[in-house]
Simulated scan of single mutants.
Amino acid sequence: MDIEKIAKAIEADAGFELPGLVDSLAEMQQGIAGRTHTPEQMLLRQARNKTGKTQQAFADLIQTPVATLRDWEQGRFSPSGAVVCLLHIISNHPDVIDELSQINHS
């Protein structure tokens, strides 16, 4: 199995880079069990990382309780479709953060 080729295909399908994917695929091939992450968890972490914000600051930005954000990041609950849409926008257009900040401080 060509792990690099599979990883590139998965990332192409996802539309963004997935850090640690090659290592995870190698572990899977060896039969090592690991944690699973939902696409929503990965998208949330990617969007938050692109903003460079802490959980509290990001939660404030999207007007969500930090406990809810943590639940989403840890996979206890999934964000709504509207939040997923917002996360895609933030992830693909991090400059929109400035506009969100202005709206939240108005």
Rank of each mutant, 00 (worst) to 15 (best):
A59E: 11
G81D: 08
Q46G: 03
L61K: 06
K53L: 12
Q63N: 15
I97K: 09
S101C: 02
Q30T: 10
L100M: 15
R48S: 04
H37Q: 02
A12D: 10
N49S: 12
L87A: 03
G20C: 08
Q46D: 06
Q41K: 05
P19V: 08
I3W: 02
E4L: 07
L69Y: 00
I3C: 04
D71Q: 14
P94T: 13
N104R: 15
G20F: 12
Q102C: 08
G34F: 00
I97Y: 03
T64F: 04
D23K: 13
S78K: 15
A12C: 10
D71T: 07
A47V: 00
K5E: 07
G15Q: 05
G31A: 15
A67K: 12
E11N: 08
A67H: 03
E27K: 13
P79S: 14
T51C: 11
D13L: 11
G20Y: 13
M1A: 15
I103N: 06
Q30I: 03
P65C: 01
G34V: 02
M28L: 06
S24P: 00
P19M: 10
Q102P: 00
N92C: 04
E27T: 06
A14Y: 11
P39N: 08
Q55W: 10
S78E: 12
S78V: 10
L43A: 00
E73L: 09
M28C: 03
F58L: 03
I103R: 14
S106G: 11
Q30Y: 05
L61Y: 05
L86I: 07
A82I: 04
V96Q: 05
W72Y: 15
T68L: 11
G81T: 07
Q41S: 05
D98K: 15
Q63L: 10
Q55S: 15
G20R: 11
R35A: 03
Q102A: 12
T54M: 12
V96A: 07
K53E: 14
Q41N: 12
G81M: 04
D2N: 15
G81P: 01
V66Y: 03
D13P: 00
E27R: 12
E27Y: 05
M42N: 05
R48Y: 08
V84D: 00
F16K: 11
D95F: 04
H37F: 03
I10W: 06
Q46R: 13
R70Q: 14
P19T: 11
L21A: 09
L43I: 05
N104Q: 14
D71I: 01
W72R: 09
L44V: 02
D2A: 02
A82L: 05
R48N: 14
N49K: 07
T54R: 15
R76Q: 10
M42D: 05
A33Y: 08
A26N: 03
Q29H: 07
